[in-house]
Design a binder for these strands. Structure first.
Lengths: 141, 141
DNA sequence: TTCCTTATTGCAACTTTTTGCAATAGTATA
DNA sequence: TATACTATTGCAAAAAGTTGCAATAAGGAA
């Protein structure tokens, strides 16, 4: 299934439009294994749509995140990165070497339920980055 | 105990210096109940040290975070805020109205241990922001 | 197909954050 | 108390991210 076939109906259903810019950005996210910064998305998507501007990339990424097609993540440096929505997971990042591991959302289910019952909040978001030391960097300490 | 008495030895012990700028910034963080953005810190600390620059505030906040005197937190808009180190806690923030609740770190202990045993990582950081809907905003849905 | 509505884009100006470097100023030592 | 070492600051310029607005174009209706 093409990116267009997959995502266009999701936007239309909410009253939004599919555009070449959005399609190019979705395509980049969809075919990237990992999270990308806005600038990385811009540079890759420009291959498809040369007229693309960085402004549009920033706005589109935020738009996709609001509509559940992409997930934003903080990786600890104060900057946002994005990845295509799909499998719910969290990140575990090493403070020393920067290596990353994924954590399945299932692992946090119990905590989520506990937080919900104690706070009364209903937890909606599914991306968290945990920081620590990876096994290799612990040895070097 | 004054801010200076409390924090100067901590910096000295690591080979760093206490300066009027750092003291003013620590003072602001210390006496603020909540997390502050770099600009908020700048504006308040300037009352003490008029020559203070924003550059210095950004650098100092990062420095304090690296040395454990302050904690950075992401509150979901892509910008960092800081609060004085002291009691370990996390935030629970409402996506709709923006209201915030604190979550004791103790609640996450079990999850931390589980993540550590499954991943081999040693988790060091103690601030996470969870997002959801507060009780009031759930009613309005 | 053509028209019309309005969501979306690009531009330009602006705000926020970062970086390099020379000048300044803590603080350990004599 | 004076000296020297170097951590820290401020400045200026660059990079990153945001905003307002007029022009453009997606896509439903005729």
């Amino acid at each position: 299934m093409s990116c267009s076939e997959a995502y266009t109906p999701q936007l239309r259903a909410r009253g939004y439009r599919m555009t070449p810019q959005r399609l190019a950005i979705l395509h980049v996210l969809h075919h990237s294994a990992k999270h990308l910064s806005p600038v990385q998305v811009y540079e890759q998507a420009r291959a498809d749509v040369p007229s693309l501007t960085e402004t549009t990339v920033y706005r589109t990424l935020e738009f996709l995140a609001e509509n559940g097609l992409a997930h934003p993540a903080h990786l600890g440096n104060g900057h946002l990165v994005y990845e295509i929505a799909g499998h719910e997971h969290h990140h575990l990042k090493c403070r020393t070497c920067g290596s990353e591991t994924e954590v399945e959302h299932a692992l946090l289910q119990k905590l989520y339920r506990q937080l919900e019952s104690e706070s009364g909040y209903h937890l909606t978001d599914s991306h968290i980055t945990f920081f620590g030391l990876c096994p290799d960097c612990q040895k070097g300490e």
